[in-house]
Design a protein around this nucleic acid. Structure first.
Lengths: 195, 195
DNA sequence: ACCGTTCCGATGCGCCCGTATCGGTTCGGC
DNA sequence: GCCGAACCGATACGGGCGCATCGGAACGGT
């Protein structure tokens, strides 16, 4: 076997380029040529890593999903002693990517979400990501507060986080306002049965 | 002046075609040729109505915004005698386009939202639409329940509705589950201070 | 040392995009 | 009745796209 190259790391490198471009000009600004240029590899290399453009996008979406999930679990395990309330607050603000430094990831997420509405393979990845996030949220809610339907509370929180992401991206809400909404919702959730 | 044609109605006809195509294959499946074919006019007619493709998209987005707003106010004025609670429920379920027959509009909305993240002129339209919806929600909430911060409650509800739309489109939630989330949230909102 | 396999970058191909252009047609004004 | 302005459909054009191809470079096995 001649010339070995670490395919996996190259794929990640390309996925990173995809995300940068999707952040700058949307998913339709992601062309094989531009991706290759941004990743500083040749176009042929991109084609060898991914047989088709769709494959590349699927991998990139999985990549960002892993990043978000990784940051989330890192944040949860990093300081486990805190209350479930603050843990959930951190988790939710992590998932809704309202912080300035996550704006790029938010744009990438929105672009992929739109594409997923007409591309089953992308939708599949997104569904699996959402299922994971739902489990985490539901677990935290079950542990931390005695709301009657933790599953529904988790669905609510996840949808709220995504809606806030969208509204911040569009400019309808400021990041501060979004965080305020999130915090208020969590407070309401905590006081629900503890009147 | 020779040959008069109703520009405005033709623009609406074209906007309708844009929505149909965006529903079927996303915004990037919207090409001038396909739009012209779907609207059953020539490509030249499309070009005369809209100087550029972006103009056409902006108009189409405004068009769907008007439709949603129109349906919303129609539903609110149609049966004004009902309680503010049910009025808000109807409004929210109307805005979150979870019903099967609104699926097309939902896909169109998501496609435009993603594009708006990188296109200021589209973002402008969306912001104005959201501002209107926010006013309606805030008004209903102020009238109907005595939550301490109606503005924030309105922001929460609007973001939640959008997030649910997205999740239903992707297939993470069923329309029924989404409606359940919405209803549960409104109940929580109503019981907040009425313990 | 050399050989076959694997990787590489460049180039070509066919297609479709948005836009510009243009001759023909239709009609109101005089 | 004709004339010019407004409209129409078709076609031309330059460019960028995704994908396929190919000669050569790089390297491990024997």
């Amino acid at each position: 076997m001649p010339k070995q190259v670490d395919h996996e790391s190259r794929r990640r490198q390309i996925a990173e380029a995809v995300c940068q471009l999707a952040d700058e000009s949307g998913l339709e600004g992601v062309t094989l040529r531009d991706v290759a240029a941004r990743a500083e590899v040749s176009m042929g290399a991109v084609q060898r890593c991914f047989g088709t453009k769709e494959e590349m996008l699927v991998f990139a979406l999985g990549h960002v999903g892993e990043q978000v999930a990784g940051r989330l679990s890192a944040r949860l395990t990093a300081s486990p002693a805190q209350s479930a309330r603050t843990a959930l607050g951190h988790a939710a603000s992590e998932v809704s990517l309202v912080q300035e430094e996550r704006r790029a990831e938010a744009r990438v997420w929105l672009a992929f979400a739109a594409q997923a509405a007409v591309s089953p393979s992308l939708a599949e990845i997104l569904r699996s990501n959402y299922a994971d996030l739902h489990k985490v949220f539901a677990q935290l809610i079950t542990e931390g507060c005695d709301t009657p339907d933790p599953e529904r509370a988790a669905r609510t929180l996840l949808a709220l986080a995504d809606g806030l992401t969208t509204h911040v991206l569009i400019g309808h809400l400021s990041p501060t306002a979004a965080l305020g909404v999130l915090d208020g919702h969590l407070n309401q959730l905590w006081n629900e049965r503890a009147s």
